Simulated assay, not measured.
Amino acid sequence: MKKIGITGQKGFVGSHLYNTLGLFPEEFERVDFQKEFFEDNDKLDEFIKKCDIIVHLAAMNRHDSEQMIYETNIALCNKLVTSLERTNSKAHVLISSSTQEERDNLYGKSKREGREAIVNWANENSGKVTGLIIPNVFGAFGKPFYNSFIATFCYQLTHGEMPTIANDGEVKLIYVQELVMKIINEIQSEKSQPELFIEPTSTKKVSEVLALLNDYKTKYFDNGEIPVLNDKFEHNLFNTYRSYMDYKTHFPVKFTQHTDPRGAFVEVIRLGIGGQCSFSTTVPEITRGNHYHTRKIERFAVIKGKALIQLRKINTDEVLDFYLDGVEPAYVDMPIWYTHNIKNVGNEDLYTIFWIDEPFNPEDADTYFETV
């Protein structure tokens, strides 16, 4: 059992890494980190002593003052090195750097010098270090106007704003979950690599990304259609886009119901992709679900009876409650990293249609059980 601590645990990459490590309970034990530890030597030392592996992600990415970015990032690395020395730590330290290392800016300089400080500590103390030189990262829950242009575009398109392109250059990208798995692979390898370039998984022009996101807004956000997703990048980008929606106000979405003397007709889902569609009946007071997915796209459509659908983002306390009634058929889509369930709260059988974008595979189910 490897004990792993993550500085920047609650940040964009840090939170994804922390949550994913939790999917390997027999291999990894997560050591809790709070940003206040950097202001208290005793607490920082206590944290360092507990860790077999430290992933140093804490950093400032943007600020009005480049000098502030530089000074903050260097200070964080120096505090970490000093604590490693005080505690005589033998931890494997993985530090995140950036492909901006070679650019003529203070952010890139801070990342390069910070990585070099950790490498020097390792060389002088027989330590182990992995310097991760990372391209642009995107994914669910990134901070708009801070983590990436994709985070900014997604936020704007889901909040009634119009993105603009300042520089339509090509950008080398990696999805946050792909990066997290590369970090975990490096942890498992136990190798020391002072300079490890993480290869991007896609290269896109800014305008290409915006065109896809605009398509998602028109088809999915405005009309409820699951768009064509041609490859893994587009699948990841679509899940990223969905994470910026205000679920509390967007769902449940009522279906358009067509009635005539024969009865009623409702189109449940319009697809640009395939997947698996299922139908269920649920007796009163029974709850289904209480699990979450890290990649799957899923829709719950209630067509008869009364249901309570609940969602809760992993590592948060807020529960979103959606009450649906088959009298007005409606649906709720499940975001990634949200545990969810559905309960029959009526007095008759509940009829639900479930759609998911990939057939169930017990060898790779992407289904993790946790009570809402």
Rank of each mutant, 00 (worst) to 15 (best):
M1W: 04
M1T: 12
M1K: 11
K2I: 07
K3H: 04
I6Y: 00
T7F: 05
G11M: 02
G11V: 08
G14D: 02
G14M: 02
S15K: 10
L17I: 01
T20K: 10
F28E: 05
F28Y: 14
V31C: 03
D32V: 11
F33C: 07
E36Q: 10
E36L: 06
F37G: 03
D40K: 04
D45L: 03
K49L: 15
K50R: 12
C51G: 10
I53A: 08
L57V: 10
N61D: 12
E71F: 09
I74Y: 00
L80S: 06
S83Y: 06
T87A: 01
T87V: 07
N88G: 15
K90M: 07
I95N: 12
S98M: 07
S98F: 06
Q100K: 15
D104L: 13
D104K: 13
L106I: 09
L106H: 01
Y107D: 02
R112M: 04
E113I: 13
I118K: 02
V119S: 00
W121L: 04
S126L: 02
L132K: 07
G139F: 01
S148A: 00
C154I: 09
Q156A: 11
H159P: 14
H159L: 13
G160P: 14
T164K: 12
N167H: 14
D168V: 09
I174F: 08
V176C: 11
V176T: 15
Q177R: 12
L179P: 14
I184R: 03
S189P: 03
S189V: 01
E190Q: 03
E199A: 10
S202N: 10
S202P: 10
K205Y: 07
V206W: 02
E208C: 08
E208Y: 04
A211E: 15
D215Q: 03
D215V: 01
F221K: 10
D222I: 09
I226C: 07
P227Q: 05
N230E: 12
F238G: 03
Y241G: 08
F251Y: 15
K254I: 06
T256A: 00
T256I: 12
H258E: 11
T259K: 03
D260A: 00
G263K: 01
A264V: 00
A264Q: 03
F265D: 06
V266L: 01
R270P: 06
G275V: 02
S280N: 09
S280C: 11
I286L: 09
T287E: 11
R288T: 09
Y292H: 07
H293Q: 00
H293G: 02
R295L: 11
V302N: 11
K313Y: 10
N315L: 12
N315I: 14
N315G: 08
N315D: 15
D317Y: 07
E318F: 14
V319K: 08
D321L: 00
Y323N: 06
E328Y: 13
A330R: 06
V332W: 03
V332H: 04
P335V: 09
Y338N: 12
V345M: 00
N347M: 02
Y351A: 11
Y351V: 05
T352M: 15
F354V: 11
F354T: 06
W355G: 05
I356N: 13
D366C: 01
Y368H: 13
F369E: 10
T371F: 11
V372K: 02
